[in-house]
Amino acid sequence: MCKAIIYLHFVYSTMNIERYPVVVLQNHKVYEFFSDGPAGAIKKVVHYQEIENGFFNIAFGDWDADLKKINDYVRNNNGDGDKIVGTIAFTITDFMTHHPWATIFAKGNTIGKTRLYQIRINKHWPVISRLFDIDGFAGGKWKSFQSGINYSAFTLKAKMEVVNLNKY
């Protein structure tokens, strides 16, 4: 196993983030897990879509077993939002360890969701900023991420120091 993978997983483990176990599919580009709570077990899917060479859009939604398709707009009220975000954060770490040169693009489909991503980035910024370079889109411009600014989209890529661990 390469050093960057060990390092990223080690750092994630020190963050003490609660998460669900995931099933990894399609060369670490698709992850499935189940949200568990009062509304029952709800299957969630995280998909890293390569939209350009090395650029991946992160998309996330609920699997609708009746319609056999993903639905992003369902609110399941399982009361486990933090654990779901923690699980998505884990998939980001895992994805980046296997695709260290990738840039991830993230945009919530509602202002609330994008804001939720931002709150979580802020909360773990001291650790995240050691591992990743994050840019946010605000006021018509891409800027390096700063706390206290409301962004409508984000990009994330592993810092060169992390990627270069594999060389040693």
């Binding site: 939209i51 350009e52 998309a59």
Partner: peptide, 27 residues
């Protein structure tokens, strides 16, 4: 269909708001 739509939306957004070179260069 949902994932296809999300990819199209991302492509559109990035066309409208291109990423700065410092983000692109590493790729």
């Amino acid at each position: 269909p949902f994932f296809k739509k999300k990819a199209e939306e991302a492509i559109e957004f990035l066309k409208k708001h291109p990423l700065p070179d410092r983000v692109k260069n590493k790729n």
